[in-house]
Amino acid sequence: MARPKNTENAVARRDELINASAKLFNKLGFQRTTVRNIAEEIGITSGSIFYHFDNKEQLLEAVIEHGMTSGLSIVETQLSELTGPLSRFHGLVLSHLLALNGPPGNAHNVSFREWGSLSQKARNRLRAVNEQYRNVWIGELTNLKKHQRLKSDPEFCRRALIAALNWSPVWHKQTSKQHLEKASDQFCAVALNMNVADFVDQRMKE
């Protein structure tokens, strides 16, 4: 079916569909969510969805891509004015927590749970975006290693830390930026085998 022209209204409707789908996929699961559920969520007919997406699977791919690109955008913003290795590490961890607990949070949760529901072609397309995020992490962790702040392997540290961060919304219920900044200090201190107060002190002195 032909796609609508790339007008502001079409883009806004597409974004609305992605956000509604992210919410429902997160709440009900991909398999249990129907196209009718998504249409009812934003008050349109089911058929209208197919002017923007061929099927529900394509919507899932769009949701996960949205989570990835939003995360990258948050990282770029947080790191743009930071220079010291500890400050940038803190900014990187904070970015991940902000993404999980902010507007892209539903999409991130969907990506964790529903990656296996994507086709192999969709996974291959999204891996290119995911690789960009991985490279940011490896770059910052390698810089910490260079400055003798990180003693473990950067790749293993990345995997372990991201896994821990991804589960944090289950037990860390405070979502204000102030609380997330403090949580970031704690995560960073654990990763670098430091006392939290020492980490904060040294980060502030960079």
Rank of each mutant, 00 (worst) to 15 (best):
A99S: 13
L100W: 02
L100Q: 10
L100Y: 02
N101W: 12
N101H: 10
N101A: 12
N101D: 06
G102L: 07
G102N: 08
P103M: 10
P103T: 02
P103G: 03
P103I: 05
P104A: 10
G105D: 13
G105C: 11
N106P: 02
N106G: 03
A107D: 07
A107N: 02
H108A: 12
H108S: 09
V110Q: 11
V110Y: 12
V110E: 13
V110M: 14
S111F: 10
F112N: 13
F112Q: 15
F112I: 15
R113N: 15
R113M: 14
E114G: 09
W115E: 10
W115H: 12
W115R: 13
W115P: 06
G116A: 13
G116L: 12
S117F: 03
L118T: 07
S119T: 14
S119D: 14
Q120G: 10
K121Q: 14
K121W: 11
A122Y: 08
A122D: 08
A122P: 05
A122V: 05
A122W: 10
R123Y: 04
R123K: 15
N124F: 04
R125P: 07
R125A: 14
L126V: 03
A128F: 07
A128E: 12
A128H: 09
A128C: 01
A128T: 03
V129T: 06
V129E: 11
N130F: 07
N130L: 00
E131F: 08
E131V: 04
E131D: 12
E131C: 05
E131N: 09
Q132K: 13
Q132D: 02
Q132C: 00
Y133G: 01
Y133D: 01
R134K: 09
N135M: 03
N135L: 02
I138P: 09
I138H: 00
I138L: 03
I138F: 05
L141E: 07
T142W: 01
T142R: 03
T142F: 02
T142G: 12
N143S: 04
N143Q: 01
N143H: 00
L144E: 03
K145T: 11
K145W: 02
K145N: 03
K146S: 03
K146Y: 05
K146P: 11
K146F: 05
K146H: 06
K146I: 03
H147G: 01
H147K: 01
H147A: 00
H147I: 04
H147D: 10
H147F: 10
H147Y: 09
H147W: 03
Q148L: 01
Q148Y: 00
Q148A: 03
R149A: 00
R149Q: 08
L150P: 08
K151N: 11
K151H: 06
S152M: 02
S152Y: 01
S152R: 06
D153V: 07
D153T: 13
P154N: 00
P154G: 00
F156N: 07
F156A: 11
C157S: 15
C157A: 15
C157L: 09
C157V: 15
C157K: 13
R158M: 08
R159F: 07
R159K: 15
A160N: 14
A160M: 07
L161Q: 07
A163R: 14
A163V: 14
A163I: 10
A164W: 08
A164V: 11
L165F: 05
L165Y: 04
N166C: 11
